[in-house]
Simulated assay, not measured.
Amino acid sequence: MELGIALPTSGHFVSREAIVRVAQEAERLGYKGLWTYERLLYPLAEVDYVGKGETGPLDRYYRIAFEPIETLSYVAAKTEHIKLGTSIINTPFHSPVVLARRFATLDQFSNGRAIAGLGQGWMEQEFITSNVTRKYRGRGSEEFIAAMRAAWGPDPIQFRGEFYTIPPSLIDPKPIQKGGIPIIMGDSPLLL
């Protein structure tokens, strides 16, 4: 069994120093991965916990949340071998080429340690802020992953789908990991 640990990228103890201290100690103790997540905003209105049938305020823990890939890139410079993953980044709020390039850059800077944890989003306020509808969930997320994998593939790239199109292009950098960066899917309102 491989164990990972969440970086303190939000909550009462969020700080650059705490993130580095936890990352370095986790690596020293033999943990296999460091994880962080995306939260676009802290809504002032109550949120609808999709699938739970309840509404309420988002926990104050999420009031501040550091950006995941930028945080992991910083941590990559402070560690040597521990994997660096997102748990999760919501695909509807991003462009697949831009996110593919950001993950590839992390993979380059970390010497092949990136893991792309992706989800479909759940909080209505984040969909509104991103100016996208929930129609990108499901098939849109599957196509998003296909477009990311295309961007990580050999040049020239070309991709055409229902939701995303990449005209014939050269897209770099490429990930160090053969076959591209591992992708895991998660999508629970409790996986924050």
Rank of each mutant, 00 (worst) to 15 (best):
P57N: 06
T36S: 13
N90A: 02
L84T: 08
G4I: 01
L192R: 15
V132N: 08
P189W: 09
G30F: 05
I166P: 00
G30W: 06
Y164H: 14
N90W: 00
G53R: 07
T36V: 00
R160K: 15
L58H: 04
D59I: 03
G119K: 02
L7H: 03
G117S: 12
W152G: 12
A77G: 15
G51W: 02
L84G: 09
P167K: 00
I128D: 14
G4S: 07
E46D: 15
P168R: 10
V47E: 14
T79S: 10
F93V: 05
F103A: 07
P92R: 08
G53P: 03
A45S: 14
F93N: 08
Y136Q: 06
R137A: 01
P173H: 09
D187C: 14
P43F: 09
Q125N: 10
P175Q: 06
P154D: 13
E54G: 00
Q125K: 14
G85V: 01
A18N: 15
A23W: 05
G112L: 13
F109G: 02
G119L: 04
I184V: 15
E27W: 10
L58E: 13
Y136P: 01
Q108A: 12
A114D: 11
G119T: 03
R102N: 12
L7P: 03
E46T: 00
E67Y: 04
E67G: 11
G153T: 07
F109A: 13
E124T: 07
F144H: 09
A146W: 03
I157G: 06
T71F: 06
G138K: 10
D172S: 14
S110Q: 07
L40W: 05
A26M: 08
I88H: 00
V98A: 12
V97N: 04
P156T: 05
S188H: 07
R39V: 12
K78M: 15
S15L: 10
G112S: 10
P43I: 01
E126L: 09
H94G: 04
A100E: 02
E162C: 05
G186Q: 08
T91S: 15
Q177Y: 05
E143T: 12
V14I: 13
Y49E: 01
L99V: 06
A146Y: 06
Y42R: 05
L99P: 09
F93G: 08
D187Q: 12
T105M: 13
L191W: 02
I115Y: 13
F109S: 11
P156I: 03
I176E: 06
N90R: 07
M148W: 03
F66P: 00
V22E: 11
A150L: 03
V47F: 01
D107S: 06
I183G: 07
S10P: 00
S73H: 00
V97W: 04
Y62D: 06
A18P: 02
P57H: 14
P43L: 09
G11N: 09
L29C: 14
